[in-house]
Design a binder for these strands. Structure first.
Lengths: 120, 120
DNA sequence: ATGACTAAATAGTCTCGCTAAGTAGTCAGA
DNA sequence: TCTGACTACTTAGCGAGACTATTTAGTCAT
């Protein structure tokens, strides 16, 4: 399983959008984001990836930050979407969809069969 | 137009696959690839992007190289897909599609409306 | 000649996801 | 009480690859 492992190259840029998306449901914190994105199939992000990313979001004013006590554990740094963050998220999603359409068209993905389809 | 210009961050990794795809129709050369990808909507790749990329493909054995005389102009370095290259292309397309499904699902893209849809 | 277009190469920069290591809080079990 | 596991955040440094910018060089029209 997982024979094409290190395609995390593809996360460039989109990861930021994915993180913003996790905040739509309400404020959340770094460690929780990593577990949620792992469940979503994006792989296990390490601290060295997620925390600098969150710091960049804060610096850009896309999220606001608040420390809260941990629920049986260390304190947590909660991040919430700002108005700018919500706008950015929406635009990024549109842009991603457009980009993706361009790529998929060029790669002629509709003509590609997966092994699952072939063997079924 | 083009207000979110530099999303070329997203090209990371996929660009290589797109270049391989252009060779499916037959051998081609760097300069032509850049014009074809520009027409496909991927933006104007500069020499500093495409030539190192082609060199990497050659180094990996995914393409073979042949110099030919130019048609009213300098000589051209033609690149053709090898068997390995074709295999790699197919696998990369499957992997991209899977990755893309994961991302699109997480971003809940089906719920996003473009400005075009809103104003139509 | 001069400039425009084609065609490839290379040096150097920057971003960002990565590895790796550290700090620190809570809690269960030996 | 000590050890380990889990939670939670931080930081330093690395590397891949797309970027800018420049150079070289062939053909052709003005």
């Amino acid at each position: 399983m997982n024979e094409r492992a290190p395609n995390s190259e593809w996360l460039r840029g989109v990861l930021e959008t994915c993180v913003l998306q996790t905040m739509v449901a309400g404020p959340t914190y770094g460690y929780q984001i990593t577990t949620q994105l792992a469940e979503a199939g994006l792989g296990e992000l390490k601290g060295g990836t997620i925390y600098p990313l969150l710091a960049r979001l804060e610096k850009k004013g896309l999220v606001s930050v608040e420390w809260r006590a941990g629920d049986g554990g260390p304190g947590r740094k909660y991040f919430a979407l700002t108005a700018d963050g919500l706008t950015e998220l929406h635009e990024a999603k549109l842009a991603w969809r457009a980009f993706n359409t361009t790529i998929s068209t060029h790669l002629d993905l509709s003509s590609v069969q997966s092994q699952q389809e072939v063997t079924s």
